[in-house]
Computed example of a mutant assay.
Amino acid sequence: MQSTVITTLPSSERRIARRPVRWHIAVFLAPAFLIYTAVMVLPLVETLRLAFFQTTDQQSRFVAFANFLTLLQDERWSYHFWNALGNNTYFFLIHMVVMVPLAILIAALLSLPITRAGSLFRTAIFMPTMLSFVIVAFVWRLILSPLWGIAPDILDYVGLKAYFAPYLGKEQYALTTLGLISVWKELGVPMVLMYAAMLSIPNEILEAAEVDGIVGVSQFFQIKLPLLWPSIGVVAILTFVSNFNSFDLIYTAQGVSAGPNYSTDILGTLLYRTFFGAQFQTGDPHMGATIATMMFLIILAVVCAYLFFVQRKLVRYQL
């Protein structure tokens, strides 16, 4: 019979053989984690807490969903909330209808081999993205001013002065004008994403399409555009989140009241006006937190719906 000898290492050697704990990872991550927690997590938790409380006689009391019912049902609050939500949706649709097709068109033109000075055009289109919304709003207010702006003179020079109007001063034009200004500023990012997606399409696919006689515009719609759907989905969800968090452009151009007559009021300006107060309106942190919570829930619902329903269908278009 053969005997099997089992040798065991001493306890000291077993401890040495164990994988060392990498404490340096926690040390390097700790500053970012603490800053993110202090700047993002704690304010979010405090906002959610305020939305379920009310203060009467300097005493805070839990009211459950009473603030949400007031926001959605009370005439004084519901009008402004639904008006701001509708304006936010319209503001987002302007970007989707104008900015995304325009970004795809410019990216398609810049990706053509015959296009000259493509880098110069890409830089020129991307430059407004680097500007602050405060600067953009102030400059465009000067340009569109009926008194000292240059827009009336430019339209008069090309024979279109009859179409000029105080676009930021009329209810039917103000929000559309601000939406187009935002499109002008933000066009560079989706253009670059679409341009990069087009360049990433393998030449073998395009050569195979040319062999089958698919060239020119037909090649774009039958080959390139389906392969761009994942990038279009990313642009759409980023645009949605950005638009529903927007505040600075409306605030700088139209003020905290988002005039004229609340025609440019969005959820961001409504939140600011409710939380901090404005003119003859006193601030109410609890109702402001309720509006912020509704914004958070709307964005969360749309992002989750995109990830679980849309993103899965877009996977089959990926290379």
Rank of each mutant, 00 (worst) to 15 (best):
L144C: 12
A38R: 04
I6V: 10
S218E: 09
L50S: 09
C304M: 09
R76T: 07
I154K: 08
F220C: 02
S231R: 05
L300T: 09
A103W: 14
P152F: 08
T115N: 05
S263A: 15
I250A: 13
E204G: 09
Q222K: 13
F68P: 03
F52W: 14
P43G: 08
L300C: 05
I35N: 05
F121W: 12
I104Q: 10
T7G: 09
T55G: 04
R76M: 10
I201Y: 05
V217E: 00
R76G: 02
I114A: 07
Q73L: 12
L187E: 05
F276L: 12
L267A: 12
S231K: 06
D74C: 00
A64S: 11
V139N: 10
F126H: 12
I25V: 15
F28M: 11
P10Y: 12
I143M: 12
G259Q: 11
M194G: 02
P128E: 05
W229V: 06
V27G: 02
L314F: 02
L175Q: 11
A64K: 15
R316Y: 02
H286Q: 10
F247N: 07
S257M: 12
H286Y: 13
Q59E: 15
M130P: 08
F244D: 03
A108N: 13
H286D: 01
R18H: 14
L193R: 11
S3H: 09
D265Q: 14
F53L: 09
A117L: 09
G277W: 00
G118P: 10
M96L: 06
G277A: 07
W77G: 01
L249T: 00
L110E: 01
L9F: 14
G118F: 10
T177Y: 03
K170Y: 13
W77N: 04
T70L: 04
A66R: 15
V21G: 03
M127D: 01
N87M: 05
R141Y: 01
L175T: 02
T115R: 06
G288W: 00
G277Y: 13
V100A: 15
A174W: 01
T55A: 15
Q318C: 06
L48F: 15
A107T: 02
T123W: 14
K224H: 03
Y306D: 06
L297A: 07
R19I: 08
V215G: 04
R18Q: 11
S132R: 12
D156Q: 11
G188D: 01
G216N: 14
L160E: 03
N203W: 04
T8E: 14
